[in-house]
Nucleic acid binder design. Structure first.
Lengths: 344, 344
DNA sequence: TTGTAAGCGTTATCAC
DNA sequence: GTGATAACGCTTACAA
């Protein structure tokens, strides 16, 4: 079932079979028929491993994300796909499952030629911690060039600032989210962040703090809680907030996922949203609109982020210099029913 | 940056470098040091393409799913990962994006040796429709053996019944879900299915119809609506149901995703859940519990499905005969607050 | 313990 | 248009 057997079967050389496979227009009609027949007969399937090896490329792009199952990625992937199809790339996805080694393993795939490029959607903080093979894979390269990597959504650390990225202005958007609550008249506004080392949410936290400062409002002790980017984490964080002496009248959650957790916990305490407490999220994942009440949030143009990220990667894989500037795409405040003026 | 340059740098043969890489214990301490030094100096990274090609295996397992962003996959992947780590496999994920070619492309990767095995979580109906390369990849094999494929979650078509699968008893579980509504006293119970060709939800529909029949209840015209497996599809389906003369007092949704859409639509009509209409879902994805009211549903043991699926695949890749019997894992009815006795 | 050398299945570069 | 044939980078007998 190798090209060789097909050649024998068809009574031609292996070169001809290869040509038939790669550029049939360079093969005479009559020969083409013979070869196709031989292929059908032998049930041949070209060994992609050998092919990729020989060609030195795979036409595969690896998308690294923290976990499939995050609804936000649906849109981003759709955008990536649209471009990938157009440009002739296949997409392979890998999960870090929130751990360090996860990423390193996949970063190496570009280096070891198993993929032509990488799109990083996962949180990138993990692999800054050690100096393992993977992190260095992103730093150095034998010939000093930068490997084809584009970072999507995430905020970029200084260490990785030589990689291009596509994302919203997290600080500005967070500022706008907090600003919306302030505009409604809230003064006691809490923030639920991700983990303490999450870059993404630390930018959003910065925006929150900036908005508070602009408005001359204090950020009281305990008003910033870690929600671990999870529903349960957000519930715990909310529990803390509700127990506070100066209980906030509004909570800004760094992700919609956590906002859903917060809402659940608030209801469990017999409080009303937005009557007793207003909630605003971030991402506009599809479950934000079906929440009860529907969640006010900051929408990221997920599909657009996916498209632009992939487009930029394609240029990098083609060998173009795409620079390292982050591309900022527009966010949008989506007003729904989970925010309202405070009661008093 | 090939093994050859490292060999030259270290003053040894390429065989020694290769040995160092694969079984360092067979290399003298002193030589080991020399080689390691040369590797560091050259910044060498072994070309996995060449390696896999030569070895004829990749230690890679491909997980095919319809689309990233489905919260239900989180748990399944966690289970798959646990086993993969233990058995020394890496996981690569691919999306069909709900189209046929998507699957074919990836199915071929096993055939073409880029992955050692496949786990199919995606709906498998698409690739039954044509006789393309991919579908045949799952059917025939040069030497007549069955390629290492295990199907997770999904119901298996007769055409694919020679492949092993791991899943819940969809019919039985659906019967229980509908039965729960019947036990509560509901008589007008509707069902929101996926697409008409979705195997998964057609089994659930069968369970629903069986339960109704058992109870001697009719399934009136219009009580079974297609929800396209999406929130919006479910909203449309619900709109149809609410407009019905004999408006149902309870709706069984074939997935939690659709249940959230249905709930949203019901609330938009100013109706109460479960006061006016009871809702029950299927899957117990993580947003089911945070819905308002929390969603009564059928829980699938996602993590367990992932584990068992991967375990079985590992045995298949090892060459063991794993048979083709579907393995049925237990489901569980999770009572929350979206179901209650009918008003009257 | 190390080196030599024969492949693995393709693609690509030549002649013809 | 087609056919030899030399790579590609690595693993693995087999020899030394």
């Amino acid at each position: 079932m190798s090209i060789k057997q097909v050649a024998k079967e068809a009574g031609v050389s292996i070169a001809t079979v290869s040509r038939y496979l790669n550029s049939p227009e360079h093969v005479r009609e009559k020969t083409r028929l013979k070869v196709q027949e031989a292929i059908d007969k032998t049930g041949f399937s070209r060994n992609a491993l050998a092919r990729n090896f020989r060609r030195g490329k795979t036409s595969l792009v690896m998308v690294v994300l923290s976990a499939v199952g995050d609804p936000f990625f649906s849109g981003v992937m759709r955008g990536i796909w649209r471009v990938a199809r157009r440009e002739g790339y296949s997409i392979l996805i890998s999960e870090t499952q929130f751990n360090t080694t996860g990423f390193n393993e996949y970063a190496d795939m570009v280096f070891s030629k198993q993929a032509d490029g990488i799109i990083l959607l996962a949180s990138i903080s993990p692999f800054m911690r050690d100096g393992g093979a993977g992190s260095s894979a992103l730093e150095r390269r034998a010939d000093g060039t930068v490997p084809p990597v584009v970072i999507g959504c995430e905020t970029v650390t200084p260490e990785l600032s030589h990689f291009p990225s596509v994302r919203v202005d997290n600080i500005g958007a967070a500022r706008e989210a907090a600003g919306h609550l302030i505009d409604l008249g809230h003064k006691r506004i809490a923030f639920i962040s991700g983990a303490h080392d999450s870059l993404l949410t630390s930018d959003r936290e910065r925006g929150y703090r900036a908005a508070m400062e602009d408005a001359g409002l204090p950020v009281a002790e305990g008003w910033v809680q870690e929600g671990q980017l999870s529903i349960d984490g957000a519930r715990r964080a909310t529990r803390e907030l509700l127990a506070l002496e100066s209980r906030p009248s509004a909570i800004f959650c760094a992700t919609d996922e956590m906002a859903l957790g917060a809402m659940h916990e608030i209801r469990a305490h017999g409080l009303e949203i937005p009557g007793d407490i207003s909630i605003i999220g971030f991402d506009d994942m599809r479950y934000a609109a079906t929440a009860s009440p529907p969640l006010t949030t900051i929408a990221q143009p997920a599909e657009e982020i996916g498209e632009h990220t992939m487009e930029r990667l394609c240029r990098a894989m083609r060998g173009d210099d795409i620079g390292a500037e982050p591309e900022v795409v527009p966010h949008r405040l989506v007003l729904r029913s989970s925010t309202a003026p405070p009661r008093e």
